[in-house]
Write a protein that binds this DNA or RNA. Structure first.
Lengths: 205, 205
DNA sequence: GTTCAGTATGAACGCTCGTTCATAGTCGCG
DNA sequence: CGCGACTATGAACGAGCGTTCATACTGAAC
């Protein structure tokens, strides 16, 4: 027995993947280190050669998906000219595609980040707020330029509520989207782009 | 010591309330029976005079908030004539108000129902699907009558995606709504009603 | 005044938790 | 060939888990 010292060591990645799968399915507190180890064909102790703690694994998972989300959003904005309607549609579509492509990662990040120690949790909260701000900025810019219309809603700070409506539509798409359903991921992403424009009441939309 | 046999026994309700508070804050699996007992000024054993298990308490919480949600939605529909636009706006507004009024209940129900034993979890899933169906039915009815427009979105089954967009906007409102913010709960509910009409592209909206 | 159902106690149950550690196997490098 | 870095093992740790139970107190009913 004892198959020690594996090749170039994909072990950290295998543990990461197992954490993703199990945290998604059972929640962070509902998953044990022993289940994690079993899922990678390891014993519990071996996990600690690669992650300092169960919390450290959670942070690695949450941090990585936030990196990827930031990258997707930045790349999308870089690919747009300055038209807020184009930007909003592209952002909503790209972020929807991202959440459909990474349902486990995003669900764990959205649901289980509360179990991180205070410092890391705060850093995550800050990153999430920056994403919110990004959508809100596009909506505000569009309103000032007259492409979007929120005034007629007759509510204080409707931009904030509208940006959260768009974000909730996008972020929780994986709670119902079925890859075996009649609509493809790409179609759903495009559809969310158009629904975002409807929410913003983009002129001529 | 031992202050036994309290008055008419509000104890089950106090345990229910403590479960609500703690499950919301730390998650179901992140909450211990001892914490629950402490929060009600009881010892762990006393909990079991009122709930058969920790799972039974979770089910009581989740079940009650689903009852209340059903009641709100039915009452709202009863208060409307048959106009789908009126119905949609009223449903979105009322359900938003409900989620703002019961942030703990709805968060626990939405997040922790996965920890229920299979049978009870299935019953919850069925109730949630019925709510989805209710919104989708109104959208479909409105489309047939020509008050809503989804065809121009150019996507298969856009009604399903649109109804989920509306539901996610509504169901997750408590993740960002701040009662100390500039917009009141009532305003936000009304605003969500109008945003739902925008998503459905209600004619003249 | 006695009874009895209801309810709390507090100690204990067996189990599982996250984590540690001495040990040993494996492999690339000199 | 032999060393040293890496990594897995498996047993153990103390702590805490959900739950049970014998016991005792209380207050309303008769």
């Amino acid at each position: 027995m004892a198959v020690n010292a594996r090749s170039p060591s994909d072990t950290p990645e295998r543990i990461h993947e197992a954490g993703l799968e199990l945290f998604n399915e059972r929640g962070y507190t509902g998953t044990t280190v022993r289940e994690l180890a079993d899922a990678c064909g390891l014993t519990p102790g071996a996990i600690y050669n690669h992650y300092a703690s169960k919390e450290a694994l959670l942070f690695a998972i949450v941090d990585r998906v936030h990196d990827e989300a930031d990258a997707v959003l930045s790349a999308t904005l870089r690919g747009c000219d300055g038209d807020p309607a184009v930007q909003l549609e592209a952002l909503a579509a790209a972020f929807t595609a991202f959440h459909i492509a990474r349902p486990r990662e995003t669900r764990v990040a959205n649901r289980d980040y509360i179990y991180l120690p205070a410092g890391e949790r705060d850093s995550v909260v800050r990153r999430r707020r920056r994403v919110r701000g990004l959508f809100a900025d596009v909506l505000r810019e569009g309103e000032q330029r007259g492409c979007f219309a929120f005034g007629e809603l007759g509510s204080e700070d409707a931009v904030q509520a509208a940006s959260m409506a768009i974000l909730n539509m996008v972020v929780f798409v994986a709670e119902w989207f079925d890859p075996r359903g009649p609509r493809s991921a790409a179609d759903t992403a495009a559809l969310h782009g158009r629904l975002a424009l409807r929410i913003a009441r983009a002129s001529g939309c």
